[in-house]
Computed example of a mutant assay.
Amino acid sequence: MEARNLPIIFYPSSTPPSRSWSPPLENFVKANFDASFIPHDNRSGTGIIIRNSNGEIMASCVHPNSDILNATFVEALACEQAMLFSCDLGFQRVIVEGDAFNITSKMKNATVDR
């Protein structure tokens, strides 16, 4: 993926997601992502759904991915795809939430991580 300057504000979720979905604040959307990994084929798939504060689905998509290194990479890629998808659709206040708590936690850290 190419690097872009994202003209939107992302708010990574600060807690692991619960079993039930909770709406974002008004004037925000929530981009939920998840990924699956097939290690013997080095392939993965990403699913993204964007909802508004009323719970209405604003957009959704799936991404097939190839040449995947490991499960951690899959979750980081899924998070990036959720951010880029939100940006491409023009959303400006996005809460990004996925089950990869370590990835969204690292997004809040200002230091560079390999």
Rank of each mutant, 00 (worst) to 15 (best):
Glu56Tyr: 13
Val29Arg: 04
Gln81Thr: 00
Ala35Pro: 02
Ile103Glu: 02
Ala76Thr: 03
Asp99Ile: 09
Met1Lys: 05
Ile95Trp: 05
Cys87Trp: 14
Leu77Trp: 02
Cys87Gln: 09
Pro7Ser: 01
Asn54Ile: 14
Glu56Ala: 13
Ile38Pro: 06
Phe85Pro: 00
Asn70Asp: 15
Ala82Glu: 02
Asn5Glu: 05
Ile68Asn: 03
Gly47Val: 01
Met1Thr: 05
Ser53Met: 08
Asn65Cys: 03
Val94Thr: 01
Asn54Arg: 12
Phe101Ile: 07
Ala78Met: 02
Ala110Cys: 11
Glu97Trp: 00
Pro7Ala: 01
Ala35Glu: 03
Ile57Ala: 11
Glu2Cys: 11
Trp21Lys: 06
Ser13Ile: 11
Pro12Ser: 12
Glu97Arg: 06
Lys30His: 06
Pro17Gly: 07
Ala82Asp: 00
Phe101Val: 12
Met58Asn: 07
Lys108Glu: 11
Ala35Gly: 01
Ser22His: 08
Ala59Cys: 10
Ala76Arg: 00
Val96Lys: 03
Val29Lys: 03
Val74Tyr: 00
Asn54Val: 12
Asn102Tyr: 10
Val29Ser: 09
Arg4Ser: 05
Ala35Val: 04
Ala3Ile: 12
Asn5Ser: 07
Ser60Asn: 11
Arg19Asn: 13
Ser36Val: 05
Phe85Gln: 02
Thr111Ala: 14
Thr72Ser: 09
Arg19Tyr: 09
Asn5Lys: 06
Asn70Phe: 10
Leu25Ile: 07
Ala31Pro: 00
Arg19Gly: 15
Pro24Leu: 15
Lys106Ala: 15
Arg51His: 14
Ser86Leu: 04
Pro23Phe: 09
Ala82Met: 05
Pro23Trp: 04
Asn5His: 00
Phe73Tyr: 06
Ile8His: 07
Ser20Met: 09
Ile48Pro: 05
Gly98Pro: 01
Met58Gly: 00
Glu2Ile: 10
Leu89Ile: 09
Phe85Trp: 03
Ser53Cys: 15
Met58Tyr: 06
Ser86Ala: 10
Pro64Trp: 12
Ile9Trp: 07
Pro17Leu: 06
Pro16Ser: 15
Ile95Ala: 03
Ser105Lys: 09
Gln81Cys: 01
Asn109Arg: 10
Asn102Ala: 14
Val62Phe: 13
Ser105Trp: 14
Arg93Asp: 07
Leu89Thr: 08
Arg19Trp: 14
Leu6Ala: 00
